[in-house]
Amino acid sequence: MQGARKSYETSDPLEAIAVRIPWDGEGDGLEAMARCFIEEYARMGWDPPRIAKLFANPYFAGTNGVLELRGSDWVQRLIGEVFGPTAAEGGD
């Protein structure tokens, strides 16, 4: 082991940096984000039931928060829009 004790550096304060992005709970902010989630997972090959679980599971705070705010019908509608007519079949 070697080295002196490291002194506090003002340029590296080890602060958490977060950016607040305001939305007023209506219109494009939330829906766009939720749709984005669904599209991304759809692109990775996830099927609608599996994606729905992302919203249902409280351990996924982001998506679950959307479900809490908008309800599961709203979420299902959105999933249906992304998957089109195949959503009803549940995909493979």
Partner: peptide, 15 residues
């Protein structure tokens, strides 16, 4: 086999 079609950004994409 084809898995499905999805709508992404208003466009259809096949998997």
């Amino acid at each position: 086999p084809k898995v499905r079609d999805v709508t992404v950004g208003g466009k259809t994409w096949s998997l």
